[in-house]
Write a protein that binds this DNA or RNA. Structure first.
Length: 151
DNA sequence: GCCAACGTTGGC
DNA sequence: GCCAACGTTGGC
């Protein structure tokens, strides 16, 4: 069964426009265990992913992507020059994973966090209740309603 | 830039 | 294994 997700990204670092230009990209740099476990254990090829811009002027859901690979070792954990370097990760025991997503769509009408927070329909979203988690589940009904409003 | 929320670390 | 200290996230 296809599941629905929301990935946060800071547009200054990597935006929906960057993903569109590259067509697909590896979602690396996740350094939170719960987010990692979801990437590794719960996500399946074909799952749909809302892309959300955080830490910017207008935080909002801005586009749609699709999971196109299984989880795999995130090489940035081994690179001392990377901001995502983890000295405790080894080739034998890697800690962090990434997966690939492909751009699907950039929304005509991004749905802002402000609107999401104001609407009781979205009250149970992790975006509202667990703001800091970077890989979030999205219930099918919320996902469909977001798509409907953004297009 | 502030600060609340919350995840991680490490001493005990 | 508890919990205080500390670091990070991210909205405002």
């Amino acid at each position: 069964m296809t599941q629905h997700w929301l990935f946060k990204t800071e547009p200054d670092a990597y935006s929906i426009d960057d993903l569109k230009r590259e067509k697909r990209g590896s979602w690396d740099g996740i350094r939170n265990y719960q987010a990692r476990n979801r990437l590794r254990d719960d996500m399946k090829i074909g799952d749909l992913v809302l892309i959300y811009h955080s830490s910017c002027a207008v935080p909002a859901v801005v586009g749609l992507a699709k999971v196109v690979s299984a989880a795999k070792v995130d090489p940035s954990q081994f690179q001392p020059s990377s901001p995502f370097f983890d000295a405790k990760a080894t080739a034998d025991k890697p800690r962090w994973v990434m997966l690939d997503i492909a751009w699907q769509e950039t929304f005509a009408k991004p749905l802002t966090l402000k609107v999401i927070k104001q609407d009781p329909f979205f009250a149970d979203m992790e975006l509202v209740s667990r703001g800091r988690l970077s890989i979030q589940y999205v219930a099918a009904e919320c996902f469909n309603e977001i798509l409907r409003r953004c297009r």
